[in-house]
Write a protein that binds this DNA or RNA. Structure first.
Lengths: 229, 229
DNA sequence: CCGAAAAGTTGACAATAGCAACATTGAGCT
DNA sequence: AGCTCAATGTTGCTATTGTCAACTTTTCGG
């Protein structure tokens, strides 16, 4: 029987869930320092283990950061999902998602940069499956709102509409992504006007897309590349 | 008389222009490795000087990377400027700038991320003056195209139009910025369709802005914050 | 022509990433 | 139970790095 509460000061040899503890510590340090340049040893210290224990769970720092990034994607997907819960109007759902997306970035720039800043992307390696899953969930939410009429008319999610929906998402996503990063980098501001600015931009997009939606060319994709290639 | 060409193999005690050499080496390594995690010592080695020589020109690594970033901003400003040279149509000028911007990012993602990825932004310190200068130049080009009629009607660059022009730039810039980063991170693709995708997106924006241009609220800004605050 | 400042060098220190060898524990098998 | 073994954690080590301090060589202004 493993009872790690019996003796608070006498940590058992085995931590219980170091993997989780290390990732949590990383999220903490990342939020505090807003930098990915912390040391694995620092995390080990925070978790109260020896400097090399993390290596039993992560091959190297890159792998650890990938895990942190994955947690970030899951959190973002959840926040976007939660934000739309109970909203009947598809347009309102889309707006809520956009706000949640921007908020997520502004509230933790370093995490957002880690997620999207190509720490893994640089290598030719694919993104972890868990990230892709979260990303697909986010995309599905957006697709749902669009097909439900967020752009002024119903656009059923059929094969015929696929490239048009992707066209709309390309515009919508890149606009929100860009705004988020400009806010984060304080190249537009002030941060307090985040909500106001994002609504202005969103308004512009929705109006534009209501008039005409581009169709993506053959072979173009939006979202994390499929696993195979 | 200092003649550093007289004896190729006998490097003089003083390098001549180490500052420049270090920055050049950094740009090289950055382009090759697509990562800012190189060592100052590596740069010193490449420049053929001792491991501490760079510290006579840069207080620390951050300062060196700031200098690299500044060079990147200058290059980007020049590329955008060159791209518009000789184009009479303001709309074409705007499109050319957008393409140059995106190209710059896709051709050297690591540099682009360094420039916009808040290596300096994290600290409360302002961006170097040289960066702000380049940024203002870029913004001036965009303002020029817009006021010349890139959005379908002339919008003179007057105080009355200031917040409307900034509104247009907010949309235009964040859209291009987002598209660039999504391309860089391969979250949209393929890279070969860069030109096609950016033209599609640009088209959507210009059409949208031709219909209505948002007016930014009081206190909002677009571009690097002014020096004072 | 001299003295100080600029530019470069050598040597040191603490911290880090990551490897290897060793120690401890718990889970499965008999 | 008792044994075994893989998972987990630890200690010790090496190579590398950022940065400081002290020293040397040039260059340049007065």
């Amino acid at each position: 029987m493993t009872n790690e509460n019996s003796n608070p000061d006498q940590r058992p040899y085995h931590h219980g869930d170091l993997q989780r503890a290390i990732v949590d510590a990383a999220l903490e340090v990342l939020s505090e320092s807003q930098s990915t340049e912390f040391s694995l040893r620092e995390l080990a210290r925070r978790a109260g283990v020896s400097h090399n224990a993390p290596y039993k769970h992560f091959a190297d720092k890159r792998e650890l950061l990938a895990a942190v990034s994955a947690v970030g994607f899951e959190a973002l997907a959840r926040q976007m999902s939660d934000a739309t819960r109970g909203l009947a109007s598809p347009r309102e759902r889309l707006a809520a998602m956009a706000r949640a997306y921007i908020c997520g970035g502004v509230n933790n720039p370093a995490l957002y940069r880690l997620m999207f800043g190509g720490y893994l992307t640089d290598q030719q390696s694919d993104r972890p499956a868990i990230e892709r899953t979260a990303a697909y969930r986010m995309k599905a939410l957006v697709v749902g709102a669009i097909s439900d009429g967020a752009l002024g008319r119903l656009i059923p999610h059929t094969a015929a509409n696929e490239r048009m929906i992707d066209g709309a998402i390309l515009i919508f996503w890149s606009q929100m992504h860009g705004l988020t990063l400009l806010l984060v980098d304080r190249l537009v501001g002030p941060g307090e006007a985040m909500r106001e600015l994002s609504d202005i931009v969103l308004q512009g997009i929705l109006d534009g897309l209501a008039n005409s939606i581009p169709v993506l060319p053959e072979g173009a994709w939006v979202g994390p590349p499929l696993a195979g290639k």
